[in-house]
Every structure is written in structure tokens, then in C-alpha cells.
Amino acid sequence: MTQSEFVNPKKAANAIGEPESTSAVKQNVVDFSDFLDQIDSVLEKNAEEFVNNFVQKGGE
């Protein structure tokens, strides 16, 4: 048998469709400068301390 399927066909119906053209996503490109403004409002002001104080223990 050479024909096989990787997923349950009943799932394929509501699965991910064709990729959007990248240009569709990028119609927002003009909005990107607005987005950059938005970043300024969500980042904590003390950048250096914020980053340096993020200390974890190793995982796995």
C-alpha cells in the first residue's frame, strides 16, 4: 500500500488551510510604527534591572 494519510481524515476537515499569502499578513506593514509605539507603553522602564534580575535555576 502506497497511499497513506498522516491524520485522521475527519480532522483534516477542520485543519489548517492553505497558507495565507504573506502579503495578506503584511498589509499591516504601515501599522508597524504604531506597533512600535505600543511596545514603549508595555515595557517596564528599568530595562537593565529588569533583565538582570531575571535569574532562574537550570531546568530539564
Binding site: 502506497t2 497511499q3 497513506s4 494519510e5 498522516f6 491524520v7 480532522k11 483534516a12 485543519a15 489548517i16 488551510g17 492553505e18 497558507p19
Partner: peptide
């Protein structure tokens, strides 16, 4: 070569 029928997410 296997003529797999790929799921939409595999194709993407």
C-alpha cells in the same frame, strides 16, 4: 516516492 497523502498541516 511514497505518494503520501499529506494532511493540510503537513503540506503547509
Amino acid at each position: 516516492s511514497q505518494q503520501f497523502v499529506l494532511s493540510p498541516e503537513h503540506i503547509y
